[in-house]
Computed example of a mutant assay.
Amino acid sequence: MAAKVAPTTTLPSRDEVDDIEVDAFIHAMSRRHGYDFSGYAPSSLKRRVLQLVQTLDVAHVGELTARVLRDDEMVPQVIAKLSVPVSEMFRNPAVFRKLRDEVFPVLASYPQINIWQAGCAHGQEVYSLAILLKEAGLYDRCQIYATDFSDEALAKAQEGIFPIRDARLYSENYLAAGGRHTLSDYYHARYDFMKLDARLRERVTFANHNLVCDGVFCEAQLILCRNVLIYFSDALQDRVLGLFRDSLSRGGFLCLGNRESIRFAPSARDFAPIDAELRLYRNAGGLL
């Protein structure tokens, strides 16, 4: 009798195995700890998870999954590494100049101004906004809500301490954004760091908020969320835009990052462009 020949099977490639393991990691983080990354852009999330494996010196994503399932103390570190807290003060100065020249005069008509900085990372843009609001005479009427889903990033933001090596770039950005003094008026330099004036935090509330799964945070006249949506899938981007729409007051302003576009999102109809190139929009529902 002829021996049976086992059917040939094609083993998955290393890349396919990584995809399977990343999916299992996402499921574990959601089921075990309540952090849902399923709506993130797959290629970006996979890249960050693989970088996390190298950073934490584990053998593979499967081992990382096993550890986060059993070690609660490891989760904050994982969340901090998966977030992308990359920013600078007055990043894209033209955006801040536009806010100063065209948005602030409208905000000045409100007795109380609520501003939501979503995905605040290490706080550079929060402090940038606070400085310009002070120079416009609006800061004392403002409440700025600076949120992020990483407690580690929020802690750094609250410190307001940044490397002094970045001071020159920040100063150039500040002047290009229409700053009226010198940036050094707002910080104290010591050793290799610059510490921003504590008065810039007087009207700022730092809080944990996850755009993926949390609801409306506040009613705001201005929402800034710059270069966060680029890490989300199309469906999640649309959900977050709906969240921003529901959080904005009538005619409120939305400022996104220059790498983001709402052109093809179903929620785009809810926003009227003020300056599409600078990604500045207004709540269209409040303009009818």
Rank of each mutant, 00 (worst) to 15 (best):
T10C: 10
T10F: 12
I20K: 10
E21Q: 13
V22T: 09
V22D: 01
I26N: 00
A28S: 14
R32K: 14
D36R: 12
G39P: 07
P42A: 10
L45P: 00
L45R: 03
V49W: 05
V58R: 07
A59S: 14
A59T: 14
E63R: 13
A66P: 08
A66K: 13
V68G: 11
V68F: 12
L69E: 15
M74N: 11
V75N: 13
K81L: 15
L82D: 04
P85Q: 05
V86I: 14
S87H: 04
E88Y: 07
E88C: 08
R91A: 00
P93Y: 03
A94R: 05
V95P: 02
R97K: 15
L99W: 04
R100M: 11
D101R: 12
E102Y: 12
F104W: 08
F104H: 05
A108V: 07
S109Y: 06
Y110H: 13
Y110I: 05
Q112A: 08
I113R: 00
N114K: 08
W116L: 01
G119K: 01
C120M: 00
Y127L: 01
A130S: 06
I131L: 04
L132C: 07
K134M: 13
E135H: 04
A136M: 08
C142R: 02
Q143W: 07
Q143R: 08
A146R: 00
D148F: 04
F149P: 01
L154W: 09
L154Y: 10
I161H: 07
I164G: 05
Y170D: 03
S171G: 14
E172D: 14
L175W: 09
A176L: 15
R180W: 12
R180A: 15
H181W: 14
T182S: 15
L183S: 06
Y187E: 03
Y187W: 14
H188V: 14
A189Q: 15
A189H: 13
M194N: 06
D197L: 03
D197N: 09
A198P: 09
T205F: 09
L211T: 02
D214T: 10
V216M: 09
F217R: 05
E219A: 09
E219D: 10
Q221M: 06
L222C: 07
C225L: 05
C225K: 02
L229I: 03
I230L: 06
F232C: 04
S233Q: 07
A235G: 08
L236I: 01
Q237S: 03
D238R: 03
D238Y: 04
L241G: 01
L241Y: 01
D246P: 06
S247D: 04
L248S: 02
F253C: 02
C255M: 05
G257E: 01
G257T: 05
G257K: 02
N258Q: 07
N258W: 06
N258I: 09
R259N: 10
E260Q: 03
I262C: 03
R263W: 09
P266C: 05
S267D: 06
A268V: 07
F271L: 03
A276R: 14
L278C: 08
N283H: 15
G285A: 07
L288Q: 13
